[in-house]
């Protein structure tokens, strides 16, 4: 025990192997122990992106001739090809419309409900809250066929509004859950003061609650947009023609096409699909992380 104590004080920094003399080899070993997993994490996370980026700026011939990551003759030809492809342009417009539509509708539906659950004491509110949150556990595989058949029966196939409603519906539980927690943290006194000053419910929502809840609203908008932008299986069954497809479906179609694959174009398409959201995310990172952990640990 005593020897260990002495050793430990000598070691100083936590993480160094305790109880062993600090030789050069041990130091190197320690660096490796910490550094190697980090290096692996970087490789694991970034290599798929880098490979795709690299292929997207190669020529078709070079993809087979030069397997390295650095292209010898970088070209933007593949991007030009994608940007002039009507399927891509259609899908891009659809994704933007469905993305913003879903974000907006999710907030419009979720915000008043969350406010009611957080602020009002009304009969059956616990049951109704449970009824709003519990369906979040339903996986999309469970609704794929029923939603498709309902859409067929109500003539809602191939409509962007269908996608917006379906995505918003699947996101409402998360949105309500995040916002209820957030609204409860806003002191009731602020609203009571405004009430005394003659502000009605709408004024209080508009000028007090919404500005204070901005971080929650941003989180929800980003998560809703992400879902609409990336979702694949529902859009696959709810749309049948290129005019209503979103980007993931269009990219999937591209990979399915007959003949030799046009790898650079496919890679360029993937890069263009991925990039806008990554850029948005880097600006709003801290909000999204809190939203994701809130959603997953439920």
């Amino acid at each position: 025990m005593a020897e260990h104590l002495i050793d430990a004080t000598k070691v100083g920094s936590r993480g160094h192997m305790a109880g062993k003399p600090r030789t050069e080899l041990a130091k190197f070993g320690h660096r490796l122990l910490v550094g190697l997993p980090l290096f692996m994490l970087a490789v694991w996370t970034f290599i798929p992106f880098l490979v795709t980026l690299s292929v997207s700026i190669k020529t078709k011939i070079e993809t087979f001739a030069n397997l390295g990551l650095v292209p010898q003759q970088p070209t933007l030809h593949a991007y030009k090809e994608v940007f002039t492809d009507p399927n891509f342009l259609n899908a891009f417009v659809n994704s933007v419309v469905v993305g913003f539509g879903t974000a907006l509708l999710t907030i419009v539906i979720g915000l008043p409900a969350a406010y009611a659950f957080a602020r009002f004491k009304f009969r059956g509110r616990h049951l109704l809250l449970l009824f709003t949150l519990l369906p979040r556990l339903v996986p999309s595989i469970g609704i794929l066929v029923p939603i498709y058949r309902l859409a067929v029966a109500t003539n809602m196939l191939d409509k962007r509004i269908t996608l917006i409603i379906v995505y918003a519906g699947t996101l409402v539980p998360l949105a309500v859950w995040l916002m209820v927690g957030f609204f409860q943290q806003i002191p009731r006194e602020i609203e009571e003061a405004a009430d005394v000053d003659g502000a009605n419910l709408w004024d209080r929502l508009r000028f007090i609650v919404m500005p204070l809840a901005a971080p929650a609203l941003i989180t929800i908008a980003v998560l809703a947009f992400r879902e609409a932008w990336n979702e694949f299986t529902l859009v696959l069954v709810l749309t049948t023609n290129p005019t209503t497809r979103t980007l993931p479906f269009a990219l999937f179609k591209m990979g399915q096409s007959e003949g030799i694959s046009n790898f650079p174009a496919e890679a360029a398409f993937a890069v263009i699909t991925v990039l806008p959201f990554i850029l948005v995310y880097t600006r709003l990172e801290r909000y999204v992380v809190s939203g994701l952990t809130a959603g997953s640990s439920k």
């Binding site: 009824f131 469970g142 309902l150």
Partner: peptide
């Protein structure tokens, strides 16, 4: 409060709860 929470409950029922039970 009922008016406020109705759209959310309706949307969740229409898109998640009803389809899965109907399925």
């Amino acid at each position: 409060p009922y008016l406020f929470s109705f759209p959310a409950i309706f949307a969740v029922s229409a898109v998640l709860a009803f389809p899965v039970l109907y399925g």
